[in-house]
C-alpha cells in the first residue's frame, strides 16, 4: 500500500540504433510533484510512455503505484491521469464533448462544466478541437487528465504553447493537486517551471539522470562559485573586464546586453565591475549576485544550453 508513486530502476529503451533511455533510475514518493527536466530528445516522453504502459522497456523495471504498467494496465489506468505530449482528440470533437467522454470512463468524475470554466474554456465548449488555439488544446488535454480524480497524473510538457497567464493558472492548479494529495510527474524543459513547482527535480540528458534533488539542493550543490549578473548596452569587451578582475574569474556576455561574471563574488569584485563599467561610460543595471539557477546547473553539467 505504501509503494512509491513511481519507481524506475535501470530503465533502457532503444529505437533501432537510438538509445532513447539509457539506464534511468528514479523514485517518486506519493503525494509529491516531480519534474523530469531535460532538453528535447533527452528521453522524457519515452520514459513517461513506459510508465503509462504505452511502450515496453528493453531492460529495467518500472513500478507505478506498485504495479507493472505493461502487465497491470487495466488495474492501473482508472487510477492514473494522463496528458500526452501534444494532446490527443478527434479534430471535429467539441471541447465539452471530449471531456464528457473521458469523464464517462471514470466512476466519480469532477464536473466537466466546472472544470472547463475554471480552465478558461467556458466559452469554447462547443468549439471543435481543431479550432482551439494551441494553449486551449493543452488546457483541454490537462482537463482530460484530471477529470477522473486520479491519484497519480503524468503530464508531458503540460504548459507547452501556453501564454504566461495560462501557465500561471496551471501552476496554481498543480499546487492544488499537491495539497489534495495527488502525485504529479511532469516533464518540462522550462527551468522556471521545475524550480517553482517541483518537490524534486530529475535532470535527464541522453536518456540518463545527470542530477536530482530538490530545486534548492540542486542549485546549492552546484553553487560553490556564486555569480554576478548585470545588464548594460550590448557589445562590451568582456576580455577587458576579465582582465580587470583577479586571476580565475570568467566574464562573458550570455545574451546581447546580459553579462555574467563567474567566480567568488565579494564586495571588492562588485566594486571592480561597477567601476569598470563606469570607465566604459555605461551604467550596470539590474546588478544581481546570487546562486545559479537550474538553467546554469544544466549548462555546467552538460556544457550545453537547455533550450536549443
Amino acid at each position: 500500500m505504501n509503494a512509491a508513486a513511481v519507481e524506475i530502476t535501470g530503465l533502457v529503451k532503444r529505437f533501432g540504433s537510438v538509445t532513447a533511455v539509457d539506464g534511468l533510475d528514479l523514485k517518486m514518493p506519493k503525494g509529491e510533484i516531480l519534474a523530469l527536466l531535460g532538453p528535447n530528445g533527452a528521453g522524457k516522453t519515452t520514459t513517461v510512455e513506459i510508465c503509462e504502459g504505452f511502450r515496453t522497456p528493453d531492460a529495467g523495471t518500472v513500478r507505478v503505484l506498485g504495479l507493472d504498467p505493461a502487465r497491470d494496465g487495466a488495474t492501473l489506468r482508472p487510477r492514473v491521469g494522463v496528458m500526452p505530449q501534444g494532446g490527443g482528440a478527434y479534430p471535429g470533437v467539441h471541447a465539452e464533448e471530449m471531456l464528457r467522454l473521458v469523464a464517462a470512463c471514470a466512476a466519480e468524475p469532477l464536473d466537466p462544466a466546472w472544470l472547463l470554466d475554471v480552465l478558461g474554456l467556458g466559452s469554447a465548449r462547443r468549439t471543435p478541437f481543431k479550432r482551439l488555439s494551441g494553449g486551449q488544446q493543452q488546457r483541454l488535454s490537462l482537463a482530460c487528465a484530471l477529470i477522473g480524480r486520479p491519484e497519480l497524473v503524468f503530464l508531458d510538457e503540460p504548459t507547452a504553447g501556453m501564454d504566461p497567464q495560462a501557465r500561471r493558472l496551471v501552476w496554481e492548479l498543480l499546487a492544488a493537486l499537491r495539497t489534495d494529495g495527488v502525485s504529479v510527474l511532469l516533464t518540462t524543459h522550462l527551468m522556471e517551471e521545475a524550480e517553482s513547482l517541483a518537490d524534486d527535480v530529475v535532470i535527464v540528458d541522453d536518456g540518463t539522470v545527470i542530477a536530482q534533488g530538490s530545486p534548492s539542493a540542486l542549485t546549492a550543490e552546484h553553487a560553490e562559485d556564486a555569480q554576478l549578473r548585470f545588464r548594460a548596452r550590448p557589445g562590451l569587451d568582456t576580455r577587458l573586464l576579465a582582465a580587470a578582475l583577479p586571476e580565475g574569474y570568467v566574464a562573458g556576455e550570455s545574451s546581447p546586453g546580459s553579462y555574467r561574471v563567474i567566480g567568488h563574488v565579494d564586495p571588492q569584485v562588485v566594486s571592480t565591475v561597477t567601476s569598470w563599467c563606469a570607465q566604459q561610460g555605461v551604467l550596470a543595471e539590474e546588478l544581481h549576485v546570487g546562486r545559479r539557477d537550474l538553467e546554469e546547473v544544466f549548462l555546467e553539467l552538460t556544457g550545453r544550453e537547455l533550450r536549443t
Binding site: P78, R79, C105, A106, A107, R149, V182
Partner: peptide, 8 residues
Amino acid sequence: FTPAPGRG
C-alpha cells in the same frame, strides 16, 4: 481534487 479513482 482529492483522489476518487475508479472505472465508469
